[in-house]
């Protein structure tokens, strides 16, 4: 049995799952719109959370935050569940599928056999939608893949019960009620305000534009503090978080710029178009930072790719973003 489900490939798993699920229930909310309403844009350099023994750099809000905010803003009722018993988790999934309900699941990436080898890390914040089952095989709309993929029950169960940081514990979510044509004006405004607050007004200096400057200060000292080898590892991890984990490029800045264009038409205000353009340029700057970082990792650094040089690039990004979010905050009211 397979649910008729329109699968659209997305840049990021959570915004993609949100968009695809809503589309199934007749709401045409693109991925970037979901990302914007869900206030996905963020920055944090969190020295006390370690990923592969290296401090966490993040360009997006907390896991599940986008989906939660979108469903709350659009008044969608969601049923979410976690499980202790693996068998029960799988049989409940099957019974939902039998009722023709597509099921969102949080999983680990490591045990999903359809993932390219190079992406298979113990990363527990992946999201996908199960849309059917035949025999022992599940059909999955995994938003970061071009087409529907398949996975055995054994592997899916393992992925749903992956262990470690932020273990999914078999978490599923289904949409119970979706309003027909909700007004987007307030959700869009709310989403923008939340991002402005996170970027400008964070109470701790490791988040938002202050966080970017904090990272710049740390990064500058990595070679002397950690030694060259570790410094490059730290740097590589920042580049990976910025580009690799399904960001749509430039640490989600391009995706958010796409959202600002949509916001311009929803809010009927062309000022957002200009802000979108500025954010695109900021995204391009982030990309240059990644290029410099990668050159270092490959030991092909040029003069301006030095650690102080890269710290300077980060500070420029921070300054530009600070001004951008201030302007954004002023027009959104």
């Amino acid at each position: 049995m397979r649910i008729e489900f329109e699968h659209k490939q997305s840049a990021h798993c959570e915004s993609g799952v949100t968009s695809n699920l809503l589309y199934h229930y007749g709401l045409d909310i693109t991925e970037s719109m979901a990302f914007g309403i869900g206030a996905g844009l963020f920055f944090g350099y969190i020295p006390f959370i370690k990923l592969n023994k290296i401090p966490l750099t993040t360009f997006r809000c907390s896991v599940g935050g986008i989906f939660k905010r979108v469903s709350k803003s659009l008044k969608i009722s969601v049923k979410e569940k976690r499980f202790r018993n693996q068998q029960k988790a799988m049989s409940e999934l099957d019974s939902l599928l039998e009722q023709n309900i597509p099921v969102g699941c949080q999983t680990g990436a490591f045990w999903l056999p359809y993932f390219p080898e190079a992406f298979r890390f113990h990363f527990n914040m992946h999201n996908l939608i199960v849309v059917g089952k035949e025999g022992d095989t599940y059909f999955i709309s995994d938003p970061v893949f071009p087409d529907i993929v398949t996975c055995s029950a054994f592997n899916l169960c393992k992925a749903r019960f992956a262990k470690g940081t932020l273990a999914p514990k078999g978490r599923t979510y289904i949409l119970e009620h979706v309003p027909e044509s909700p007004d987007l004006v307030i959700p869009v405004r709310k989403g923008i305000k939340a991002v402005c607050n996170a970027m400008l007004k964070a109470p701790i200096p490791i988040i938002g534009v202050k966080g970017i400057r904090y990272l710049a200060g740390k990064l500058e000292k990595w070679p002397e503090k950690l030694g060259d080898e570790m410094a490059l590892l730290y740097l590589g991890q920042v580049v990976r978080m910025q580009e690799e984990i399904g960001t749509g490029g430039g640490g989600f800045r391009f995706m958010y710029a796409a959202f600002l264009q949509q916001a311009a038409s929803v809010l009927e205000d062309d000022n957002y178009l200009e802000l979108s353009e500025r954010l695109t340029q900021i995204g391009d700057k982030w990309r240059l930072f990644a290029v410099s970082g990668a050159r270092n990792c490959k030991k092909r650094a040029r003069k301006r790719d030095s650690f102080p040089g890269m710290a300077q690039m980060l500070r420029e990004c921070a300054d530009l973003e600070e001004q951008l979010f201030k302007d954004l905050r002023d027009i959104v009211v």
Binding site: A118, G236, R240, E244, A290, V291, G293
Partner: peptide, 11 residues
């Protein structure tokens, strides 16, 4: 993208 490929290779 090459920088991504490099960062991934590094890992």
């Amino acid at each position: 993208w090459e920088p991504k490929n490099i960062a991934n290779e590094q890992a």
